[in-house]
């Protein structure tokens, strides 16, 4: 079984899953220059569940895009698994994402024409695994997220929570060391939101993944090993008055 092959102790010699050094991002248009990130310094250790919170417009989406290797910062360095991804070529970055990262999105981003199993199989195909191995792997991962009996369902026949479980199964393909989840509970009701949060926390604890959750949802805080608060393009100390005010207000 693919999941049983995952080792919770893998790559423990790497102390940091994600690190950012003075990351800045400026969006320049003809009319104006907008600095979204103003020197982010961040360290996320391996093998736990970490939450990045912040109000709308704080720069969360830009920061997570940069940390995922999908966006190049204007300045600064980003390290994933001790490798500086800001020095990688686009081709190398694509390969790095394929080998080390998994993604979960707010809108699920499943192929509507494909069944649950096929959506997971596509991720195997992207990683070069085809045929029976991909089919068996998809079945194992759907079993893991509790959807083994829904493998032939298309996304339109699944609930929001079930869609997100399929997306998580897809993110687990290839045993990624880092899973980046962007607002994974935003489109879910409270019950499904809690179930998904528990699942991601379980993956971090039991499977040895590093899970970075980007969210507004205060219900996720109880599953967080660390919380990073982003406001106005900067990481604020958790005990700062702005962070405390925000966390209290959303709670």
């Amino acid at each position: 079984m693919l999941i049983q092959q995952l080792s919770p102790q893998r790559n423990r010699n790497r102390t940091k899953a994600i690190a950012a050094r003075d990351v800045r991002m400026v969006y320049q248009s003809r009319a104006e220059r907008h600095q979204v990130l103003k020197g982010i310094d961040l360290e996320i250790p391996r093998g736990a569940c970490h939450v990045l919170m912040g109000p709308s417009g704080s720069g969360k989406t830009t920061l997570v895009s940069i940390l995922a290797g999908l966006l190049t910062p204007t300045a600064g360095q980003v390290f994933l698994l001790d490798r500086e991804i800001t020095q990688l070529s686009p081709r190398e970055l694509t390969r790095f994402r394929r080998e080390h990262l998994g993604f979960v999105f707010q809108g699920f981003n499943l192929f509507p024409a494909l069944s649950a199993a096929e959506n997971v199989e596509v991720a195997f195909n992207v990683k070069g695994i085809r045929g029976k191995a991909a089919v068996a792997g998809a079945q194992s991962l759907l079993d893991l997220v509790g959807l083994g009996d829904r493998r032939h369902y298309r996304p339109c026949d699944l609930s929001g929570g079930q869609k997100q479980r399929v997306a998580i199964a897809r993110a687990l393909v290839g045993e990624p060391e880092i899973i980046i989840a962007d607002e994974p509970t935003a489109a879910l009701d409270a019950q499904n939101g809690q179930a998904i949060s528990q699942l991601l926390h379980h993956l971090a604890k039991e499977q040895g993944c590093t899970v970075l959750l980007v969210t507004h949802d205060p219900r996720l805080l109880k599953y967080a090993d660390t919380v990073h608060y982003l406001e106005d393009g900067q990481i604020q100390p958790q005990d700062s008055s702005r962070a405390r005010f925000y966390l209290n207000s959303v709670a």
Binding site: A68, L70, T94, R95, F96, R97, R98, E99, L101, G102, F103, F105, N109, V122, A123, V126, K127
Partner: peptide, 8 residues
Amino acid sequence: GTLKAMGA
């Protein structure tokens, strides 16, 4: 876009 993000 998801496929590209996944490393396709």
